[in-house]
């Protein structure tokens, strides 16, 4: 039976149930009119037989209990937009060693899911149709993505990015609100991109990416962190992780914990220039 057939049959069962209830309770069809305020003689009423509703006697197809459960579940597996609730996670390698990730969870609209990648976490809010669509700069040649849902098992997908060797990248992931901001400074001949993944209200991943140009001069991209002391992060240790990837070198990965700032310093901006290793680029 198709989905439309299932829906019609479900509606039929619903009608039958209502009719059955009406029959069983023999409720009056209408309330009596209010009595007139002036007394008058009433004509005598004829003797009437009470009205009885007859139940629909059409025979229902024989449905076993377990089949009914399956039908009900199937019926519930459709989103408000008529899309199957099946969750999907797709990823495709794009130019510039980036990965296009698409999350589809039609029955979890506006929900926040957690993307886990290379030990970093970002909170992603699905749109009203339960979709999210974004690009991530790759941090490894072999990439594994794990999406954690609130009420379902996680979804996993792997993908290769062969052109990562043309990039130097540093990613910084934080677990709290008002996270420190990754900053980079470089001369004009060493352009870099800064990308942020996540909604900003929760876990975010910030990435600085530089495309290695064989004709470029040597130089340094200075990396730092700006920590704005707010009422959300003061008095608390902030935890994060760093992943750094450079061609021909083992990926560098470690965790960071920033000591709690005093709540008297709310509004101040702290600059940490020596915690992240600058990207030193040699000319070829």
């Amino acid at each position: 039976m198709g989905k439309t057939g299932s829906a019609i049959f479900g509606a039929f069962l619903l009608v039958c149930t209502v009719v059955k209830n009406v029959w069983a309770d023999t409720v009056p069809l209408a309330l009596p009119a209010p009595l007139p305020s002036v007394s008058a003689s009433l004509p005598s009423l004829p003797q009437l037989q009470p009205v009885r509703f007859q139940p629909v006697r059409k025979a229902l197809p024989a449905v076993q209990g377990h089949q009914l459960q399956a039908i009900t579940a199937q019926q519930a597996n459709i989103s408000a937009f008529g899309i199957s609730c099946d969750m999907k996670l797709n990823a495709s390698a794009e130019n510039d060693a980036t990965i296009h990730v698409r999350i589809s969870a039609p029955c979890d609209p506006n929900q926040t899911v957690v993307l886990e990648y290379e030990g970093l976490f970002a909170d992603i809010t699905l749109n009203m149709t339960g979709m999210a669509d974004f690009q991530i700069p790759a941090l490894a040649n072999h990439n594994e993505f794990l999406v954690h849902f609130e009420q379902h098992l996680p979804e996993r997908i792997s993908i290769e990015t062969p052109d990562l060797d043309e990039y130097v990248r540093v990613a910084l992931g934080w677990g709290e609100e008002d996270a420190p901001r990754l900053s980079g400074e470089a001369p004009r001949h060493l352009p870099f991109e800064r990308m942020t993944l996540g909604d900003g209200s929760g876990r975010v991943v910030q990435v600085i990416s530089h495309h290695l140009d064989p004709d470029a001069q040597a130089g340094v991209i200075r990396l730092g962190m700006n920590v704005g002391v707010t009422k959300n992060n003061c008095g608390r240790t902030q935890s994060g992780s760093v992943v750094q990837t450079s061609p021909g070198l083992t990926q560098l990965r470690y965790d960071l914990k920033l000591a709690a700032s005093s709540c008297d310093d709310v509004g101040r901006n702290l600059q940490l220039k020596n915690i992240l290793q600058d990207l030193k680029l040699a000319s070829n």
Binding site: T250, L252, R253, Y254, D255, L256, K257, L258, A259, Q271, L272, K273, N274, I275
Partner: peptide, 20 residues
């Protein structure tokens, strides 16, 4: 320290008190 930690299969957390 980072490389030493990775070589010995130890996980590493850097607790930053300040820039120095």
């Amino acid at each position: 320290i980072q490389a030493f930690s990775a070589r010995n299969q130890l996980s590493l957390t850097r607790e930053v008190i300040d820039d120095t």
